[in-house]
């Protein structure tokens, strides 16, 4: 067992974890943050994407111990009082159907926009390559990221 201290969705957590425990399992099984789902076991799908120190990461490809000392934001902490513009745009553009890819997709999109506030369609598609969605065909996800970009530019004015 190893002792870790991580701030998750704004709450400081300290825990003893088995060295082999994946971050996503710690979040889901120990902290009960089941909003972040698991879609694969080869780090291909992106369903498990969370924000670690401001950058998106696949929480199935990290050990919980590797997150020691970090700040993690999951989909359950993405809204800060009110919804993040990406969440707003996802709903408005119908960028989700079953919603299983959505937590990871939203977090990945937030990261994409923080890196590149005004991405082209090609940049959005390339930027979300690591997040698979089987329902939407991505068309509306791309639209939502574009809309979120507009919303965020508006808000920054």
């Amino acid at each position: 067992m190893a002792r870790i201290a991580v701030t998750v969705d704004g709450t400081a957590r300290e825990a003893d974890v088995e060295p082999r425990t994946l971050l996503v399992h710690w979040l889901r099984d120990d902290l009960g943050l089941v909003g972040t789902p698991v879609g694969c076991d080869t780090s291909n799908c992106g369903s498990c994407t969370v924000m670690i120190d401001g950058r998106s990461a696949k929480s199935c490809s990290l050990l919980a111990v590797q997150a020691d000392g970090t700040q993690i934001t999951t989909i359950q902490g993405a809204a800060n009082g009110e919804w993040h513009p990406v969440q707003v745009a996802f709903k408005d553009c119908h960028a989700l159907q079953c919603g299983y890819c959505t937590p990871g997709m939203v977090v990945a999109a937030i990261d994409l926009l923080s890196e590149n506030p005004d991405p082209s369609e090609a940049e959005i598609r390339e930027g979300l390559r690591g997040n698979l969605c089987r329902c939407t065909g991505y068309h509306n996800i791309v639209k939502a990221v574009q809309q979120a970009s507009e919303l965020m530019k508006e808000a920054a004015k």
Partner: peptide
Amino acid sequence: LRRKEDARLLTGQTQWTDSIK
């Protein structure tokens, strides 16, 4: 109409079978 389902799906307030303890 925008979907009723989306609020819970967009905020992680979901109940997938694997989330049932």
